[in-house]
Design a protein around this nucleic acid. Structure first.
Length: 853
DNA sequence: AGCACGCCGACT
DNA sequence: GTCGGCGTGCTC
């Protein structure tokens, strides 16, 4: 292995690190620095993972492998990504079986990558041709491209391509813009040029080569045609290089010279002769230079702060819990503690004080929350305490804001970061504490590659950095509680609410009985309807939960019974009211949508019937029943606009809304003191799914939403409508008895061998036909079984059609691996994949899956 | 992710 | 016959 090589993570789903040589005049970069590297004919940014890696991937310029290439440039002198974060990302890649570059990309702020792009300019010939038309241009795309180009000006290819996509009646399918441009270039109709794109968001040093006085003198002699002893020893390359260099005595970037046939190597030789100097020059602004931007705090959050702050005396339970955590924090070492505290037991206050303890010890804290937009209160409580020593990281920020926050953290200007999942990679140094609030929340799991779980990465990060982890929840995940029970995590319990407020009393309504008496179209039971009326009369607030969006969930023809299904996915379309054009039927997976037909598309009968109800229907129903009530709805449809959820929650907090209807969003950790009634329209929505976590999710959702009631001075009630009043997850959620639920559920998981008792891996193969998907899956599974039987320590289940057999036009087949050793399963997957590298594109592997679709 | 190579359908 | 559609493979 030659020295002066680096292994680099590039932002593509490539399963390995790539090795590049660092040419002589370029200084060796440090791990975590960004480098510009050639990759498949273009230049891309990568992050240095390792310097002089001992074990290079099997590419040593051998006959089979690809030759190692030189990197083009080093963009950072210091690590752009701190080594702790680079290593953490590499661990994520290894654990979750994704490309190292994909994991690194998850840890980077927006705009950190530079990439080569292209720009196009129309020639005069092209302008003439644009009028006549282009021969052989059947699709019309070439002429469209020509006509879309402004004469005499360079246009970015990306912009040209997106204009083509929108144009004449074409469905928005992929436009091979570069191929088109290249084809036009061959005919001399346009010019195409490569440019580096990506905003200059980071400092960048580049090497600049300039001739010395001796060099200029030498070039003068050369140009004069004479020869002397010194010049005699200059090779032709060095001579021509010298002539290029003297054109600009002030110096030229090494990378630019490479384009003029002056290699870094030649420059190094000239430098050795004292004819050229090589220096570093900062060309872009320094990200570590001070550049502070005020943190934006949302309006609703400010309103919430005013309420959140005054409750300052801790209960005895809170005090005891804080004491224990403080003792742990003082040890400055890795530990994980689960804080199981009932809803309203004041966990936020404990987090806040613990963070202060950690800060006083000179260490920093990271607070992870499921979705900041839905819990602005927590962020603003921290803001009130830590002021501008706090940074916020979440997807609702614009790229610029996010980048700025990231740089503040990177420059050690903050002590506390509050953020969502991806903030687990926040570049904090001296990390002493990670808090994972509502650790059971499913939004910690990223549902695309890298499919990591924020909580689990947090635990790994803390382990590597010697920090304390606090996992908090009223309804811990089975995983975490299991870890606490088996002694891997500490466990602290808060059984009482602050100010000894009682938990809401819960009542079940058996909807079978209601249907029997009042017919199956009933939505609100008599009990729930009258309870809502009472609260409205008393000017109290009501929260209604239905974990299903839309107006109605099924449309079918009463004559031929044909349902209205999505043409791309194996689901029925959901009807939505919204939209100027009336009702539309939409697919919640691929977003396909049509105007709701009045007649059956199959038999033309005018009897289209809608059934199954969602939040929109509840909203309408409640409004119809209580015309004076101010009803609003919070679900993904109303919350899509930036700041909309916070605004809506703010209005609810201020009492401008009396009934709030919503999906699981309304169940998240909000604190609305005036809510005295929580209604669950149907507790059964999640129960029917073929998913071993169905009971756990139902229990969590019900317990959480019931926990929104009675948080103020008035006690709260909850009414849960269900078809299965005997189901244990519903029964135990009513009693809010987590421990009993855990015992029952863990017995089930043990019996069935499901997580957390074993590790689980889900694989989904997608293909253009079901047969093709099965073909690939069968072969892959066969290889896995071979390895399983030779002592892999796991079992393989499947393949079988995935619950969503068709998704976005793709046919899907899935399989599972179950086993004690994740390493064993992952090794087997890696090996099976190495045999069939092309399968990787069609195969998604989910380690520790939360949802199986 | 791009981009190149390679194999089948509708046009000069 | 060719152009160009996109399936399959590779990137140090």
């Amino acid at each position: 292995m030659p020295s002066r090589t680096v292994s680099v993570a590039v932002p593509f789903p490539i399963p390995t690190l790539l090795t590049y040589r660092v040419p002589d005049p370029i200084e060796m970069p440090v791990p975590g620095a960004r480098v510009l590297v050639p990759l498949a004919g273009r230049q891309v940014t990568g992050i240095v993972a390792e310097v002089n890696p001992r074990r290079a991937p099997e590419v040593d310029a051998g006959a089979s492998g690809t030759a190692i290439r030189d990197l083009v440039d080093v963009l950072d002198e210091r690590p752009f990504l701190p080594p702790t974060i680079t290593d953490l990302a590499l661990w994520v890649a290894d654990y979750y079986l994704c490309g190292p570059g994909e994991a690194v990309a998850a840890a980077l702020p927006p705009g950190a990558w530079l990439q080569s792009g292209y720009r196009v300019r129309i020639t005069e010939a092209g302008q003439a041709q644009a009028i006549i038309g282009v021969p052989g241009d059947r699709s019309g795309l070439r002429v469209a491209m020509l006509r879309g180009l402004p004469p005499g000006k360079w246009a970015p290819l990306g912009a040209v391509a997106s204009r083509l996509k929108g144009s004449p009646g074409k469905r928005s399918r992929h436009v091979p813009a570069l191929s088109l441009a290249r084809a036009l270039e061959r005919d001399g109709l346009v010019q195409v040029e490569e440019v580096l794109r990506g905003r200059a968001v980071a400092f960048r040093t580049r090497r600049v080569a300039a001739p010395t006085t001796a060099g200029i003198e030498a070039a003068r002699i050369l140009a004069g045609g004479s020869d002397d002893a010194v010049l005699g020893r200059l090779g032709p390359r060095q001579r021509s290089a010298l002539l290029v260099l003297v054109n600009r005595p002030e110096g030229q970037p090494v990378s630019a010279l490479a384009g003029q046939n002056v290699s870094p190597d030649t420059l190094a030789r000239l430098a050795a002769r004292g004819l050229v100097t090589l220096r570093r020059e900062a060309t872009e602004r320094d990200p570590f230079a001070v550049h502070v931007m005020p943190v934006t705090v949302q309006q609703g959050a400010e309103a919430a702060t005013a309420q959140a702050l005054p409750a300052l005396t801790l209960t005895s339970e809170q005090t005891a819990t804080l004491e224990r955590l403080r003792d742990l924090a003082r040890q400055d070492q890795f530990a994980v503690t689960l804080v199981h505290g009932v809803t309203g037991s004041g966990k936020t206050e404990i987090y806040l004080r613990l963070a202060e303890v950690v800060r006083a010890r000179g260490r920093r804290a990271l607070v992870l929350v499921p979705e900041i937009a839905l819990t602005p209160a927590l962020a603003s409580v921290f803001r009130a305490t830590f002021g501008d020593r706090l940074a916020i990281q979440h997807s609702g920020l614009s790229d610029g804001e996010r980048h700025d926050q990231w740089q503040r953290i990177r420059r050690d200007e903050v002590d506390v970061v509050v953020g969502t999942r991806s903030a687990v990679f926040a570049p904090l140094s001296s990390l002493g504490l990670i808090i994972v609030d509502e650790e059971h929340d499913a939004s910690y799991k990223q549902e695309e590659s890298p499919r990591y779980h924020g909580r689990d990465v947090a635990v790994m990060r803390a382990k590597r950095e010697g920090a304390l982890v606090v996992l908090g929840s009223a309804t811990p995940s089975l995983e975490s509680y299991h870890n606490a029970r088996t002694g891997r995590y500490g466990l602290l319990t808060l059984e009482r609410r602050v100010l000894d407020r009682p938990l809401a009393s819960v009542e079940l309504v058996n909807m079978r009985e209601e249907y029997a008496e009042l017919g199956p179209d009933l939505i609100l039971s008599r009990r729930l309807a009258s309870a809502i009326g009472e609260r409205l009369d008393r000017a109290e607030q009501v929260l209604l939960l239905l974990n299903r969006r839309g107006f109605s969930t099924v449309v079918f023809c009463r004559q031929c019974t044909e349902p209205l299904d999505c043409p791309n996915c194996s689901v029925s379309l959901t009807v939505h009211l919204s939209g100027r054009s009336g009702r539309r039927a939409r697919c919640h997976y691929c977003n396909y949508s049509i105007a709701l037909p009045h007649t059956c598309p199959r038999c033309a009968a005018p009897y289209m019937e809608q059934s199954g109800c969602g939040t929109e229907r509840i909203e309408a129903e409640v409004q119809a029943l209580f015309p004076g009530a101010r009803v609003a709805r919070l679900d993904r449809d109303t919350a899509s606009a930036r700041g909309a959820p916070a605004e809506l929650l703010g209005r609810f907090a201020r009492g401008q809304i009396s009934v709030l209807v919503g999906t699981q969003m309304v169940a998240k950790g909000h604190d609305f003191p005036k809510v005295t009634l929580v209604g669950v329209i149907s507790a059964d929505v999640g129960l029917g799914l073929a998913d071993f976590r169905a009971a756990e999710r139902t229990f969590q959702l019900l317990t959480q939403v019931v926990g929104r009631a009675g948080r103020g001075e008035q006690p709260g009630d909850a009414i849960i409508q269900t078809l299965y009043p005997e189901h244990y997850s519903i029964q135990l959620a009513c009693r809010q008895n987590y421990v009993a639920f855990y015992e029952r559920e863990i017995a089930f998981r043990r019996a069935m061998r499901y997580p957390p008792v074993v590790g689980l891996v889900n694989g989904v193969v997608g293909a253009s036909s079901l047969a093709a998907a099965f073909g690939d899956a069968n072969e892959f599974v066969r290889r896995l079984r071979q390895q399983a039987s030779s002592g892999g320590g796991f079992t393989v289940l499947g393949p079988a059609p995935a619950p969503l057999v068709r998704l976005r036009g793709e046919h899907r087949v899935q399989f599972f691996l179950k086993g004690r050793s994740r390493t064993g399963m992952k090794d087997a997957l890696r090996r099976a994949l190495a045999d069939r590298p092309t399968l990787a594109r069609r195969l998604t592997i989910d380690i520790d899956p939360l949802k199986v679709l």
